[in-house]
Simulated assay, not measured.
Amino acid sequence: MMMGGGELPGLLVHEIGGVCGILHSHVAFLKKHFCLITMKEFLENRKQMSKKVQAIYLWWHRPAIDRELLQSLPNLKVIANSGAGMDHLDLELIASFGVKMANAPRAVSSSTADTGMALLLASARRLVEGYQIAVSSTVEYSKADLLGVEVTGATLGIIGMGSIGYKIALRAKAFKMNILYHNRTRRKAEEEHAVGAAYCQEMEDLLQRADFVLVAVSPTPQTRRLLGERELGLMKPTATLINISRGAVLDQEALLRALQTGAIRAAALDVTIPEPLPRDHGLLKLKNVIVTPHLGCKTEQAAYMITEEAVENILAALNGLPMPSEVLPS
Rank of each mutant, 00 (worst) to 15 (best):
241 L>Q: 07
263 A>R: 14
239 A>M: 08
297 C>I: 00
271 V>W: 11
312 E>M: 08
256 L>R: 10
278 P>S: 05
241 L>M: 10
210 A>P: 13
208 Q>F: 03
290 I>R: 03
310 A>G: 10
241 L>C: 08
229 E>A: 13
296 G>H: 05
253 E>L: 09
278 P>N: 08
205 D>W: 04
309 E>T: 12
291 V>E: 00
250 L>M: 09
306 I>W: 12
231 E>V: 04
212 F>C: 13
220 T>N: 10
238 T>I: 01
294 H>A: 03
254 A>F: 10
202 E>Q: 12
256 L>S: 06
288 N>G: 07
304 Y>C: 15
265 R>L: 12
224 R>K: 15
201 Q>E: 14
259 L>E: 00
272 T>V: 04
262 G>V: 00
223 T>P: 08
252 Q>K: 00
230 R>E: 11
232 L>K: 05
264 I>S: 06
235 M>Q: 03
240 T>H: 09
213 V>W: 12
211 D>M: 09
256 L>A: 13
257 R>E: 12
237 P>T: 00
270 D>W: 06
267 A>I: 02
309 E>C: 08
226 L>N: 02
205 D>S: 15
298 K>P: 00
225 R>P: 00
300 E>I: 12
258 A>F: 02
294 H>M: 08
230 R>C: 00
233 G>I: 02
255 L>S: 05
285 K>Y: 02
261 T>W: 03
267 A>G: 04
282 G>E: 01
203 M>E: 10
253 E>Q: 14
206 L>H: 11
272 T>H: 00
258 A>I: 01
239 A>D: 06
258 A>N: 04
301 Q>G: 13
230 R>I: 01
240 T>K: 06
284 L>F: 03
203 M>Q: 11
266 A>G: 07
248 A>C: 01
264 I>F: 07
249 V>C: 11
261 T>K: 05
270 D>P: 08
306 I>H: 13
231 E>W: 12
215 V>D: 04
238 T>M: 00
291 V>D: 03
223 T>A: 12
275 E>N: 09
218 S>T: 15
251 D>R: 02
238 T>V: 00
213 V>G: 10
281 H>V: 06
281 H>D: 14
239 A>R: 02
236 K>E: 07
304 Y>I: 11
280 D>L: 04
222 Q>H: 14
208 Q>C: 13
200 C>G: 09
253 E>W: 09
306 I>K: 12
294 H>I: 01
308 E>H: 14
300 E>H: 13
236 K>I: 01
230 R>D: 06
214 L>M: 15
293 P>L: 11
204 E>Q: 13
205 D>G: 07
271 V>S: 03
